[in-house]
Design a protein around this nucleic acid. Structure first.
Lengths: 160, 160
DNA sequence: CATAATCTCTTCTCTTGAGAAGAGAAATCT
DNA sequence: AGATTTCTCTTCTCAAGAGAAGAGATTATG
């Protein structure tokens, strides 16, 4: 997955710190998925569904960073595992709605350690400091999305 | 690849913001790789080599989040593309050293937009605020690594 | 209306990652 | 020294993602 190409912020070792951080997040994602006996993408998609509720395959795949082909098979796997159900959309018969209907039994147990550790870290910050963190997450997310957009647009230009 | 299972911090929409952030970072990584005509993992590995210098396959694979099998083929691809060279380690003949010997021509061009945008965001913060950010990256990285460690250890327990 | 253009999902083929098994080299133990 | 254990990389098989192509449904246009 897909793995991230970090864009190093400027300080001396900042880019290393940032890279280590992203790397750790992803290694944890893989370990979590393995503990749930799922692929990392499958668990990620399940998390998206838990937070956002039912989505169409297109929406789900887009948020999970998948193209449409793999998305269909992702949903196949989740459906077979009993975590998800396909429901036809009444208003647009081209569409399907993917409803979460279950959660891996040990998901909470698996997430607990990271949740607690990160929670403790965040508790150590003042509200102002937390504002800085989440302000950064917000704006950086936008920046990366825009940058990705530019790259895709530039690539589409030069394609046949 | 692998995609992250975010562990939502506590605030109301914080977990959503955090998820969007990670998602954006990864989508940008994929777009960057595509723009360089490489896989996301391949470009990530190349970045690791640029920052860390020559590494053994084991080290490289570990940092890229790959197991040893795929790592060999990753290096095969990079070698075939001319970005990397395998050199035998004189002191330990089990080992190989992977040396970066080139970089995709348009890597800088590809990275420029994100680098600039993120740079602008970071310039908007005071030194104290930047300390908060990088303090978080440091500690969160450790937290996620430890949490992943616990999961792996627990999984190894219950395995045959 | 009818036709064309667009959208959404699925199917197919090829590349890439995971994990098990194995070969070769080094370290450790007796 | 010889045997065992450990380490590092490679090879092999199977599952998962990328992208192209296609089927079915909706919307826009003449």
């Amino acid at each position: 997955m897909g793995e991230p190409v970090s864009t190093p912020p400027m300080r001396s070792d900042a880019s290393e710190a940032y890279r280590r951080y992203l790397s750790a997040v992803m290694l944890h994602g893989q370990a979590s998925a393995r503990a749930c006996e799922l692929g990392a993408t499958d668990l990620y998609a399940l998390n998206i569904l838990r937070l956002s509720g039912a989505l169409s395959p297109g929406e789900l795949g887009g948020r999970a960073g998948l193209t449409t082909g793999p998305t269909t098979r992702l949903i196949d796997r989740l459906e077979r595992a009993g975590y998800v159900r396909r429901v036809p959309d009444a208003r647009d018969r081209r569409k399907v709605i993917v409803e979460p209907i279950g959660t891996p039994v040990d998901l909470d147990r698996v997430m607990a350690p990271a949740r607690q550790k990160v929670g403790e870290i965040l508790e150590g910050y003042t509200p102002e400091q937390l504002d800085v963190l989440f302000d950064y997450f917000d704006r950086a997310a936008l920046a990366y999305r825009e940058a990705a957009e530019e790259l895709s647009a530039a690539g589409a230009d030069t394609d046949g």
